[in-house]
């Protein structure tokens, strides 16, 4: 049978079809700048990497206040970053609302975003937003350890990433290598400790039988169920579960890592204005709303995250954001995500 030849023929035929239609990739587009006089068309498309139950109430408030009809596409932050790059200039999105500085940095690097108007980019203090106005930080989230309090004492709990490679924790530590926040931690590790140390840490973790989960929620649930003793997550997942189950039901407990350790970095969720929406007044109004007092207050109450605009109080019970912020680390350093994922792939975690 020469069916493979025919198969190849068919593939080649449809390849040439694709070649005829392909008009090249949308990379290296110059970054557009917001025009002086944005226009409103009363419609807005947001790609949200943050989940619907967290974001939709805020969207509803914005729709009511502004009269703009908002369509939101919900998916994973990283999946949307991949989608935005596949779409290039043809994207229907006006605003990208991401869970993570790294994903925003990657989309900005690909030349897909417009520079934000000054009043938006200056609303948030330096250190919690982009350095070049390509995106704006919206909320802060601290990286923490979650422990199973029935198996681990607060006193003997680990407080640095380095401790987790100890044989004591063999098979007992949960991580989510595909999760953007975990990847930001690894990037921080690379920036703070150097490439070799980061690689050594990851290899030691793999050798120590680190447990792989798909996301923060799964890790928290595993700690709550006693499946693992220690997990690496973002702080607000724990607070959300606590508000759902009640303080007494929390078998899982939080440990804030030592100040200055890569495991305890403060990351941000943020938003960017897509290049095609540079002159869209509705998109700009939405971004303004995110960093307004109302918008920030919503996140404090609904998601237990740190507000990034001065004048809005952080949720009760959280350590001061200033005590967690690592002065040696600039968030813009976290956009070297592709090096991080390459490293993760190399050590066999991706």
């Amino acid at each position: 049978m020469r069916s493979t030849t025919v198969l190849t023929g068919i593939v080649v035929a449809s390849l040439s079809l694709a070649a005829c239609t392909s008009s090249g990739e949308a990379d290296a587009e110059p970054t557009a700048t917001a025009a002086a006089e944005p226009v409103s068309d009363g419609e807005l498309v947001v790609y949200s990497g943050r989940s619907e139950d967290l974001v939709q109430p805020l969207i509803d408030d914005f729709q009511e206040a502004s009269g703009v009809a908002v369509e939101v596409r919900y998916a994973d932050t990283t999946e949307l970053a991949a989608l935005l790059q596949e779409e290039g200039d043809a994207t229907p999105a006006d605003v990208y609302f991401a869970q993570d500085a790294g994903a925003l940095g990657a989309v900005a690097k690909a030349g897909l975003v417009a520079t934000l108007p000054e009043d938006i980019s200056s609303a948030v203090d330096a250190g919690h937003t982009s350095t070049d106005g390509s995106w704006v930080g919206v909320t802060g989230r601290a990286r923490v350890f979650v422990i199973d309090s029935e198996q681990v004492d607060q006193a003997s709990a680990p407080t640095t990433a380095a401790e987790l490679t100890d044989p004591e924790w063999s098979g007992q530590v949960g991580i989510a290598p595909t999760n953007a926040s975990f990847q930001s931690f690894v990037t921080a590790l690379r920036v703070l400790e150097g490439e070799d140390a980061a690689r050594a840490w990851l290899e030691d973790m793999v050798a120590n039988d680190v447990q792989i989960y798909s996301n923060n929620t799964a890790i928290l649930e595993a700690a709550q169920a006693g499946e693992i003793q220690v997990g690496l997550i973002n702080h607000y997942y724990w607070y959300r579960l606590e508000s759902e189950l009640g303080t007494d039901a929390m078998r899982a407990q939080l440990v804030f890592p030592e100040s200055g350790d890569a495991a305890g970095i403060v990351n941000v969720a943020g938003a960017a204005l897509m290049a095609g929406a540079a002159e869209d007044a509705d998109a700009i109004a939405f971004l303004e709303y995110l960093v307004s007092e109302d918008g920030q207050q919503y996140f404090v109450e609904a998601t237990y995250e740190y507000p990034l605009v001065s004048g809005v109080e952080a949720p009760d019970g959280l350590p001061e954001i200033g005590s967690l912020t690592n002065t040696d680390l600039d968030l813009s350093d976290l956009d070297s995500l592709s090096e991080t994922t390459a490293l993760l792939a190399e050590v066999g975690l991706l």
Binding site: D76, A81, A82, A110, L350
Partner: peptide, 22 residues
């Protein structure tokens, strides 16, 4: 993915969704 078994698809998905180099 739910069974946390690292098959090819799991890795493909991880690569598509987390590395920005396709």
């Amino acid at each position: 993915a739910l069974m946390r078994f690292q098959a090819f698809t799991w890795a493909i998905h991880a690569a598509y969704t987390s590395s920005f180099d396709p």
